[in-house]
């Protein structure tokens, strides 16, 4: 086998004509000159075609194949590697966050509240000269509406306006009759 390695090395490197006298003698002892030359030629012909240029199309196809696989790997990571509950938890966190961060619309709540507003009013009644003039204070309960973020309504105008003629008539009758 030592001979194998030596002959192998010579065949791969040196043509017969360039062998030293000693190597030439040794080679002729192992194989004939013609056999060495034939083998050397065959090996060198093979080595000359060690590389063969592949087509650019093959390379382009392969690169697009690996890029496509890279993309599908990314997608599968999103759809398969993350468990379903993780996506659900993300939703649970994100939705309230959006709810908090969005500007709130002003909410106006209107509800009727009964408030005791003392109203003092004097009713002047024109009667015959012998009649006693009576002044009476009237206390009225007026419902008003309270609205958040708004100025309170003035009370007096509403109260006075709400006194209809019929109400005044009723008051007049009361005073005149004295009942």
């Amino acid at each position: 086998m030592k001979n194998f390695e030596k002959l192998d090395k010579l065949l791969r490197s040196t043509p017969f004509e360039s062998l030293s006298n000693e190597d030439r003698e040794w080679v002729e002892h192992e194989i004939s000159e013609e056999e060495y030359k034939g083998m050397f030629r065959a090996i060198h012909q093979l080595r000359a075609e060690k590389e063969m240029q592949p087509s650019g199309r093959t390379k382009a196809q392969l690169i697009s194949l690996i890029k496509g696989k890279q993309q599908s790997n990314r997608n599968s990571w999103i759809y398969t590697k993350t468990p379903l509950y993780a996506n659900f938890i993300i939703l649970l966190v994100v939705i309230p966050l959006i709810w908090v961060l969005l500007p709130q619309k002003e909410v106006i709540v209107e509800k009727p509240v009964a408030v005791n507003v003392p109203v003092y009013d004097t009713v002047l009644v024109h009667l015959p000269p012998d009649t006693v003039l009576v002044e009476k204070t009237v206390r009225v309960e007026v419902p008003i509406y309270l609205t958040r973020n708004s100025e309170p309504k003035s009370v007096d105008s509403g109260v006075l306006k709400k006194e209809s003629f019929a109400e005044q008539k009723a008051l007049h009758d009361l005073l005149v009759s004295g009942e």
Binding site: L46, E49, K50, M52, K59
Partner: peptide, 10 residues
């Protein structure tokens, strides 16, 4: 690629 192609060729 070029070396493997040469191998396949032969």
């Amino acid at each position: 690629a070029s070396r493997i192609k040469a191998f396949f060729y032969r």
